[in-house]
Each structure stands twice: as C-alpha cells, then as structure tokens.
C-alpha cells in the first residue's frame, strides 16, 4: 500500500518540522541575546536580526564603560567562576563521601542521618536566610569569597542522589576488593567513582548551573564591587545602565554562554543520566 507509506512519511516529516519549530522558539531568547550583543547600538531592541555586526558592546564591557565609573565586568566573571567551581567541587566531594558512608558502611546512626537529610531536604530554606546572614557576619566572613562558598559546600540533594546510586552497587564488588587488600579510600576512587561517571556528570551539571545563577545569597553577603559575581553585578547595573542595552546583552552572553557550552559538552549521556535523577 504505497499511499499509506507515503502518508506515514508525510506525518513523520510534519512531526520533525513541529519539533524543530518548537526548538527554535525555545532557543530564541538565547539567539536574540547573542544577536543583540553583536548589533550596532542604534539597532539593539529595534531589529531582531541586525544589518551588521560589531564588537562595540564587548569592548565597552572590557573597558568598564565609557562615561561612567568603570565596572569590573571581567573580574566579576572570574569571581563567578571561582565561587561556582569551588562550591561545586566541595558539594560533589562531600556528597560522594557522605553518600558512600550512608549506603555502604553500617554504623549506628546511619538511619538517623538518612532521615535527617530527608527532613532537611523538604524544609523551607527561606527561614534560615536571615540567621545564616548573621552567622556569616558574626564569623567575620561578610564580603569574602568564603561567604559565598561555605554555606554552599554541602548539598542535600546530591547526597541523596549518591546514597541511592551507591546502594544499587552490589556489596560483593566491595567485598572482593577488600579481599584483595584494598582500603576504603581505594575502593571509593578505584571502584565506586568509575562506576558513577554518568550520574556524577548529571549531578555536577545541576550543581554547577544552580550555583552559577544564584542571585539572592551572593547579593546579600558581598558588598564591595570587586567581589561581586557576574550575576549580581549584572542585576545591579541593569537598572542604572538601562540606556546601554547592548553591553547588558554582552554581559548576559558572558553569563550564559559558558554554561551552555559546558552543558552541551557533557550532554552526550544526558537523557540516560536524567532517567536516574528523575526516578
């Protein structure tokens, strides 16, 4: 029945067209951001596709702005990078250690800690906001990198994910390694970690992007301009620099592009990894 085959092919083509149109809509804001950052200033927000491209907005950012007080945009980018990378690595490391101890080491208190984590995960963090700020100030950490890193050095969701994943690793593997004389540290680095590659990728991506776009906390605990993260600096400059939309788009690109690239690099096994995370 050739007509039915043709009909089916037509339907598939239609489906892909629809999928593609939706994809364009989903990434349109990103495209708009990139195009606007490269547009001549008189065309920003006036034309969707600029008639010619220029790097003026980026130059403006790197030199800190023309007539106004120079702002440390580049430094803000590195602040973001420093804070996000340290915080994410700490969250990953602690989650792996805690997750391993809860999943594979039998000790009194194991269950209690597990329940505490579950309780904390569903506890509204907003209550803690003000006292946390006071603690940071009390320890003299206000306006330091530590203020942005330490309160985000442990992540409950990541612990929870690793605990569940490690539970699915058979005990026999660990026992066998012990027989061969491997210590616990070796077991973690040689057996457990290589087995957790795909879930580690997903957890890393989620932790990284959530930390990267944090606004409220980073805004509260840091004051001096050279300490601000890019997200905070952009949020603060957006209002007063309303007359410079081009550079605002350039800063948005600086804020968005690294994480998009990182994500696309690591997204090869995204769908499979997500299956575990979403369970």
């Amino acid at each position: 029945m050739p007509s039915m085959v043709g009909n089916k092919r037509f339907k598939t083509a239609l489906l892909y067209t629809l999928a593609f149109i939706v994809l364009i809509i989903m990434v349109f804001p990103y495209l708009y951001m990139i195009l606007s950052s490269l547009a001549p200033w008189e065309q920003v927000d006036r034309k969707i596709i600029p008639t010619k491209l220029t790097l003026r907005s980026y130059e403006w950012l790197l030199t800190g702005g023309e007539n106004v007080i120079p702002r440390p945009w580049l430094r803000a980018f590195f602040n973001s990078l420093l804070v996000t990378v340290s915080s994410t690595l700490l969250m990953l490391t602690t989650a792996i250690l805690v997750g391993y101890s809860l999943a594979k080491l039998k000790f009194k208190g194991n269950r209690l800690i597990n329940n505490m984590i579950l309780f904390q995960m569903f506890y509204p963090a907003i209550i803690l906001l003000i006292p946390l700020f006071l603690i940071i100030r009390y320890f003299g950490l206000y306006d330091t990198y530590w203020a942005m890193i330490l309160p985000k050095a442990v992540n409950l969701w990541a612990i929870f994910m690793y605990t569940n994943f490690f539970r699915s690793i058979p005990d026999e593997l660990i026992e066998a390694a012990k027989m061969d004389g491997a210590g616990q540290l070796k077991i973690i680095t040689r057996i457990i970690l290589p087995m957790s590659k795909s879930i580690t990728t997903i957890i890393f991506l989620f932790l990284f992007m959530e930390r990267w776009v944090e606004l409220l906390w980073d805004m509260l605990v840091v004051n001096s301009e050279k300490m601000l993260t890019l997200n905070v600096l952009l949020a603060q400059m957006f209002g007063p620099y309303g007359g410079y939309p081009g550079p605002m788009y350039a800063a948005s690109v600086l804020l968005t592009l690294p994480i998009l690239i990182l994500f696309i690099i690591f997204s090869r096994n995204f769908k499979e990894g997500m299956q575990f995370v979403l369970k």
Partner: peptide, 14 residues
C-alpha cells in the same frame, strides 16, 4: 530533549 532543556540553564537576570 537536550534542546528543549536548554532554557533551564538561563540565569533569571539574563
């Protein structure tokens, strides 16, 4: 799936 997920990466500020 990856393409439709990309907006999740955006900062609210941007």
């Amino acid at each position: 799936s990856v393409g439709y997920f990309l907006p999740y990466l955006a900062s609210g500020v941007a």
